[in-house]
Each structure stands twice: as structure tokens, then as C-alpha cells.
Amino acid sequence: MKKVSFAEFGGPDVLHLIDADEPHAGPGRIRVAVRAAGVNPFDWRLREGQFRTTRPIELPSGLGLDAAGVVDEVGEGVEGVEVGDRVFGEGTSTYAEFAVLSAWARMPEGLTFEEAAGYPSVMETALRVIGETGVRAGQTLLVSGASGGVGSAVLQIARDRGITVIGTAGAANQDYLRGLGALATTYGAGWVERVRRLGHVDAALDLAGSGVLRELVELTGDPRKVVSIADPSAPEFGVRFSGAAGSVPDALAETVRLLALGRLHIPVEKSYPLAEAAAAHTDSQAGHTRGRRVLTV
């Protein structure tokens, strides 16, 4: 099978499409013929070697956590899913023609493989970090870097829970944030005062790692009300750095629920063939994403 792999840490150019042995579904797992794989910032941070001390991997290594596809192997002990089912979920080395998933759900009717591949990790992350801030219905959550995949999910989950959101993003994404129910403003000079004019902030999320933790603590008045998924210096400010994954099955179940109610939609900004994984990483690292980027097989 074809698989994206890297044999050394570095830039996007270390990614190569290679021939590899097919994986197989062990106990409690399923294998899918991948139709689309989600591209996450975690993927290029792993490729760069940012986690080599905290999450060591053996090289050469595959990439990818999220996938949508058609079940073609069912492992021992797995119930409720059959060969031929269309599913989306999370596994390992999903930038490939076949991948093994450890958590999955049936794809809702009307959802494309490209759309489905964009949900698993971002929904798990969004649900986790909202919970870690402790923000509640009737309160206001500030989201720095709100237009990407996780931000798009956070805004819609918050709206469903009765939480007001103030989102920061580039000028081109202001209407996009407002369309998701957020009070929107741009980042850059004077952004703190622009946020203050929009309302009191009860909690804050840093999704972009753009060096704003000091200001987020200032706006909330308490570092315990700030959570970052993108700035490893967070502990220096007394801020929680959220890295340990929560329940992916629960996140998939909530995804299906919100999709069924018409309360969730994360657009796919761009799809790339598997052979263009390097270009997908380059674009993801450049930021300013509106929604998700995915690889198609």
C-alpha cells in the first residue's frame, strides 16, 4: 500500500510517499480503506520533532490520527460494525491507503469522507479544553485563534451550551466567526482593548500559540481560567497546557449528536492528494486556516 512516511525530523520535505506493508486489525480494532485523512497541527509538530522528548517515536514513522473510510477488517471482540460500513474515527498512521482505528463511529448520512475526516481530533480537543476552562452557560469565553478546526468546533459547542464566545482571527475571517455565533475581532495592535469593548471575559483559550498568554491572563484575571494547546511556555504563566487526550468515543458521539441536530459544521478549506502531504503541512503551518485541511486517497 501507499503510505506517507518520514525517516528524519525536519521540514515538509522529509515527507515521502512510500510502499509499505498493510496494517491489520488486532483485538478491539478495525481497519479501514482510507478515503480521507485529517491534517492536524499535531502532525507537523511531530514531524518537526517537537515531541521527541515527551512522546518519542521510532523512525521511520507514519503520520496521521484522523481518518474516514470503509471498514474492511474487524478485529476480535469488536461488535456493532461490519465490513463495508462507512466510518470516521481516530487511529495511527492514517496518511495511508489502509489504517487501523482504535475509536470510530458510523458516518452520518449526507457527510462526505473529506468532511468526516476533519472531525475526530478537533472535536476531542475542543470538548476537552472547554471542560478544562470551567466555563459555564451564561459566561463568556475568549478564543485566540478561533477560525481553525479546533476553534470552529469550540465556537459551535459553546453556542450549543449557551456560552458566549469572543473570537480573534485575521481580518478575512471575521464574517466566518460571526457566522458561527461569535463576537469577532482581529488580533494585532490594540486587540486587548478591542476584546474589552466586546465584554467581560470569564475564561480564555489559546489555540494558536501566538504569544498572547500574558494578555489572556490579564483579561481573565486568573491564570487558572486560561488553557493553551499551542504554547509550551504556558506553565511559566501559571496557565494549563492541555496535551493529554480525553475520550475519543465520547467526542465522536457528541459529533454525531450535533451533526444530527444541524448545530455543527466544520468546512474543509482544502483537500490534497496523499502524494501532496508536504504541501498540506506547509499550508497548515502558515496558519489563517478556515476550518480543516484533509488528504484524500
Score class of each variant (00 low, 15 high):
4 V>L: 11
4 V>D: 04
5 S>R: 13
6 F>H: 10
9 F>V: 04
11 G>M: 13
15 L>I: 09
20 A>W: 01
26 G>I: 11
28 G>Y: 09
31 R>Q: 08
33 A>N: 15
33 A>K: 15
36 A>L: 15
42 F>V: 13
43 D>R: 09
46 L>C: 05
46 L>Y: 11
49 G>L: 08
54 T>Q: 13
60 P>E: 03
64 G>R: 02
65 L>I: 08
74 V>P: 07
75 G>V: 10
78 V>K: 11
83 V>G: 03
90 E>V: 14
91 G>S: 06
92 T>Y: 15
92 T>V: 13
93 S>Y: 06
94 T>C: 06
94 T>F: 02
97 E>C: 07
101 L>N: 07
103 A>Y: 08
104 W>I: 02
104 W>V: 01
108 P>T: 01
110 G>K: 10
114 E>F: 06
114 E>V: 06
115 E>G: 10
118 G>L: 09
120 P>D: 12
121 S>Q: 14
123 M>C: 12
125 T>E: 09
126 A>N: 03
127 L>R: 10
129 V>A: 04
134 G>P: 08
135 V>R: 02
137 A>K: 14
138 G>S: 05
142 L>D: 07
146 A>R: 00
156 Q>T: 07
157 I>L: 11
157 I>T: 08
159 R>V: 07
159 R>D: 08
162 G>A: 05
163 I>P: 02
164 T>I: 12
165 V>P: 00
166 I>H: 07
166 I>N: 01
175 D>W: 12
175 D>Q: 15
179 G>K: 12
179 G>W: 11
179 G>M: 05
180 L>N: 10
181 G>F: 04
183 L>M: 13
185 T>N: 06
189 A>L: 15
189 A>N: 13
190 G>V: 03
192 V>K: 05
197 R>L: 08
197 R>W: 05
199 G>R: 07
202 D>H: 15
202 D>E: 06
205 L>N: 01
209 G>P: 00
211 G>I: 01
213 L>G: 00
213 L>I: 03
215 E>C: 07
215 E>A: 14
216 L>Q: 01
218 E>W: 08
220 T>G: 04
231 D>E: 14
232 P>Y: 06
232 P>L: 10
237 F>H: 08
237 F>M: 01
238 G>D: 09
239 V>Q: 00
241 F>E: 11
245 A>S: 15
248 V>A: 02
250 D>A: 15
252 L>K: 13
252 L>M: 10
255 T>H: 02
262 G>D: 11
264 L>W: 09
264 L>C: 12
264 L>M: 14
269 E>Q: 14
272 Y>M: 09
273 P>K: 11
276 E>P: 04
278 A>K: 03
282 T>V: 14
282 T>S: 02
286 A>N: 12
294 V>K: 00
295 L>Y: 02
297 V>I: 11
